[in-house]
Nucleic acid binder design. Structure first.
Length: 844
RNA sequence: GCCGAGGUGGCGGAAUGGUAGACGCACAGGGCUUAAAACCCUGAGAUGGCCUAAAAACCUUCGUGUGGGUUCGAGCCCCACCCUCGGCACCA
């Protein structure tokens, strides 16, 4: 063992703490600020390999930036509210607060052990009253500006965790956490009106230099569709009316559609089972029982069961007809669960000829299918139709034939030429669309897939919603002088479906004392995504008891320059944080409109078998074991080397990988130990100016590490270090300044060993305070090069030439190569492609 | 189904339209050693040929998912298709 990693890690970490090396000087003006952010962890209690990958590799970049003269803010904290604490409490009977803070303490030590250069003085803990006081304050600001409101809504409910879930926490109709099938339940809940920002969240994406896949995922999540709202008048049948069933108000079914151009093809209308009109019309239908049974049956089904069942179901409202606003046609009305109550108006106009779902439904219920869009565009209809239809038909016949095709083979869902559409027949569908809307008394409308953000949780271990109710039941924000609105401690948090805070006597007494008799507290706590939507603002002023952050510092440090995190947060946390920033910006609380300039999603470390790590598969890699055996530096280096950090791929953990990094580090240690004569000024001069092999190798590595670091490609940076070491080992003599430069370049990757070697070299201070080595660009420029020679694009040899040699000389030299001559067969090249320092291609 | 990213040796991966496979793992041969470990050196895409006791060296052809195209030249650009991964999905 060339070095004792335990000893040097301990020593180096103590030295850094003593020197307070990583504290960002937030108000300092001397250096350019750089805000490097990494998602703060949940204090689960143990650091796993994913944490290492997240923090240790991002730390390399923090160190690279610092060495290159940036004033780097690289903070850390804990996203400390959440279910696991409560579950642990239930299971082991411990206080969630104690459990959490104990874990934090343990994880702090683990985070220190990886040698990450966090600025601990900025630490935030989301469950700490000094933090959640401001989560609450921000909530009250949103409430005051009507961005937080209470609604009675059907919510998704996990029967096992006994809590309400956000849409985002449901995967395939199951609770993301425990996999239990989600049920629906109606409760009065708090919502944040993120949909008010849907358009701006969408528009803001365009300017962000994020990877397309992240932006597209957010776009899909927001799911903007532009279309129209159209009103279908409802008529009840004469039979029923004469039987004495009448309605005072003439009901209207408003539908949302993105294809108003197909309005003439509507053959029925569908209401979602939850649509209020279903209940209203119930007494006018002749098959009341059947309708009631259907609505009751679908209410029992989970969303998953509804969408899993590909077979369409539904029931007609017999005796009820809707009137097509375009042509006055009377059509049947159905209730079917393929229409979602929560999207659009909860009602759709069905165009089986031009929509897959309507087509399937019409087939099953034997409903008419009426073609109104023909794929043959009018201007070319004649020729295209004739070509496509074997020249036997004119365009009218082709249209008729096409309409028949639709009925037989399925819907045509694209644009085309309108047929069977009254005055609009013959026009292009996409052009006529808005005229049809106008002619039918409809209006343009935009819909989003995005729903408002449900933030109420019937859970204990979360930020109490800072709201109280007056005796009439109206909500009031808790005034800021009463913040933090403390989470009560006298709570029985066994899940019952009731909010645990309701069991707190202290909370009720507090409200009575502060607000008066008859006032009651809000018992729900906030979704933890609220806590994490603004933590990067708090890092700038984490201890301030008077403000959530510091206006001057926000101006200087925001937006975050680079945010590193996991791809699982693309459509939740990342969208919420953007929403918060925009909302607070509008309230003049935050100077920026977008929180994060750059965003990188990192990949996943898989088990050695290439499978996702899981206890049941027994392929979980424990980083601590590797740290113990090979040292933190080797683990860091391996994680950096495993693959490009700027692409969210899956990288299997190679059991020999860390060992090989340790060997590499030992080779460096040996090299340095063998040559540690102090450098003279002359030597430094020589090194920087001479075009010696070592100087060149250093410059190449320097350039590679710097450039690839900025791209978050640390794998090639490590490779550059390896190449450098190979070259230095091969060199006859290595001057001490070269070793110092090597150690400085090693430092971001292997901070402990670099610190140790820095001392062995007799250098002053910390290697992490040393400036990044400079090099002379001209060192990289060589005056000769090996030039590849191709004949007809195939490599046939190479020549050593001066970079500025005349083309003629190079061609002559190339032609002297036997393999080249053999290919040329004495012929003169027809063409000579010469790209200096790259290629010579002789074309015959 | 739609959208996005990708497909390169046994493995992780590298490569501004210009010598494909950097760097590393695993592997093989050798050195050091009484021996092993460690360490050091060397080798290696495939195929065929030539030479040979065998190998090395040398040469041919083929090679970045498949098929076409653009180009003096394509892993990289264009078209079509196949496959893998990720996101969305009865969103009208």
């Amino acid at each position: 063992m060339a070095y004792d990693h335990r000893e040097i890690e301990k020593k180096a970490q103590e030295k850094w703490t003593e020197l307070d090396l990583y504290r960002a000087d937030l108000s300092g003006e001397a250096k350019e600020p750089y805000y490097l952010l990494v998602e703060f962890p949940y204090p689960s209690g143990d650091l796993h390999i994913g944490h290492w990958y997240a923090f240790a590799v991002t730390d390399i970049y923090a160190r690279l930036l610092r060495a290159r003269g940036k004033n780097v803010l690289f903070p850390i904290g804990f996203d400390a509210f959440g279910l696991p604490a409560e579950n642990a409490a239930l299971k082991h009977g411990v206080d969630p607060r104690e459990w959490t803070y104990k874990n934090i303490e343990h994880m702090r030590a683990q985070l220190m052990s990886m040698g990450a250069s966090f600025d601990w003085s900025k630490e935030v803990i989301a469950c700490d009253p000094s933090y959640y006081q401001w989560t609450q304050w921000l909530f009250t600001k949103l409430f005051e500006h009507k961005l937080a409101e209470r609604r009675n809504a059907a919510v998704k409910w996990c029967p096992k965790d006994k809590t309400v879930l956000a849409n985002e926490q449901i995967t395939d109709g199951r609770c993301e956490r425990c996999g239990t099938e989600v049920e629906e339940k109606r409760l009065t809940q708090w919502f944040l009106k993120i949909t008010d920002y849907a358009d701006r969240l969408l528009a803001g994406l365009d300017a962000l230099p994020w990877r397309e896949e992240i932006k597209d995922a957010q776009r899909a999540w927001i799911g903007k569709s532009e279309g129209a709202k159209l009103d279908f008048e409802v008529r009840t049948s004469d039979v029923l009316t004469s039987a004495g069933v009448t309605s005072d108000v003439q009901p209207i079914i408003t539908v949302f559609t993105t294809r108003p151009d197909t309005l003439f093809g509507v053959t029925y209308v569908v209401l979602a089972p939850e649509h209020p009109l279903v209940a209203t019309l119930l007494d006018t239908v002749s098959n009341k029982k059947e309708v009631q049974d259907y609505v009751a049956a679908t209410a029992k089904k989970t969303e998953r069961e509804r969408s899993e069942n590909k077979e369409k179901t539904g029931v007609e409202l017999k005796g009820v007809r809707a009137v097509n606003p375009a042509n006055g046609e009377e059509i049947p009305v159905f209730v079917a669960d393929y229409v979602l109550a929560s999207y659009g108006t909860g009602a759709v106009m069905a165009v089986p000829a031009h929509d897959e779902r309507d087509y399937a439904f019409a087939q099953k219920f034997n409903l008419p299918i009426k073609s109104v869009v023909n794929p043959f565009v009018a201007s070319i209809a004649q020729s295209t139709a004739e070509t496509l239809m074997s020249g036997e038909f004119d365009s009218e016949q082709a249209s008729a034939l096409f309409a028949g095709e639709v009925i037989q083979h399925g819907p045509y869902t694209k644009d085309g030429t309108l047929i069977n559409s009254g005055d609009f027949t013959g026009r292009k569908s996409e052009e006529a669309k808005w005229d049809i809307v106008a002619a039918s008394g409809g209006e343009r409308a935009t819909n989003y897939r995005l729903r408002d953000w449900l933030v109420s949780r019937q859970r204990y271990w979360g930020c109490p919603i800072p709201v109280v109710y007056d005796p009439e039941g109206n909500p009031h924000a808790v005034p800021s002088e009463h913040l933090p609105w403390l989470l009560p401690t006298d709570v029985d948090f066994t899940p019952t479906g009731e909010a645990p805070l309701a069991s707190s006597k202290e909370l009720k007494e507090r409200v009575t004392r502060l607000f008066g008799e008859g006032w009651t507290p809000e018992y729900d706590t906030l979704d933890t995504f609220v806590d994490s939507s603004w933590y990067f603002l708090r890092y700038l002023d984490p201890k301030d008891p008077h403000d959530f952050s510091d206006a001057t510092l926000m101006k200087k440090w925001l937006p975050v320059d680079r945010y590193s995190g996991g791809s699982e947060h693309t459509t939740m946390h990342l969208l919420y944080a953007r929403f918060f920033t925009k909302a607070l910006h509008d309230l003049d609380l935050v100077p920026v409109d977008e929180p994060f300039t750059e965003r990188f999603n990192r990949g996943l470390i898989m088990g050695p078998d290439g499978q996702k790590m899981s206890k049941s598969k027994g392929n979980v890699v424990n980083p601590d074991e590797f740290v113990r055996e090979y040292g933190a530096d080797a683990v860091r280096l391996y994680l950096a080397f495993i693959g490009p950090y700027n692409e969210p791929g899956n990288y299997p953990w190679n059991l020999d990988g860390v060992a090989s990094m340790r060997k590499f580090l030992e080779r460096i240690a040996r090299l340095v130990e063998c040559h540690r004569d102090p450098a003279s000024a002359v030597e430094v001069e020589l090194l920087q100016n001479a075009s010696g092999a070592a100087a060149q190798a250093l410059a190449r590595a320097n350039l590679k590490i710097t450039e690839d670091g900025d791209r978050f490609k640390f794998n090639t940076g490590v490779a550059a270090l390896m190449i450098l070491l190979n070259e230095l080992e091969a060199a006859a003599d290595v001057l001490a300044p070269a070793l110092s430069a090597l150690v400085i370049m090693l430092a971001p990757f292997a901070p402990h060993l670099a610190e140790h070697l820095w001392e062995r070299l007799g250098e002053e201070g910390s290697v992490h305070a040393a400036p990044w080595p400079a090099y002379d660009e001209s060192v990289l420029a060589s005056d000769t090069c090996e030039l590849a020679v191709q004949v007809n694009g195939k490599r046939r040899g190479s020549v050593q030439v001066a970079v500025d040699a005349p083309e003629g000389a190079i061609v002559a030299a190339a032609r002297a190569i036997p393999a080249v001559a053999a290919q040329l067969k004495d012929k003169e090249p027809k063409r000579v492609i010469y790209v200096p320092s790259r290629i010579l291609n002789l074309v015959v």
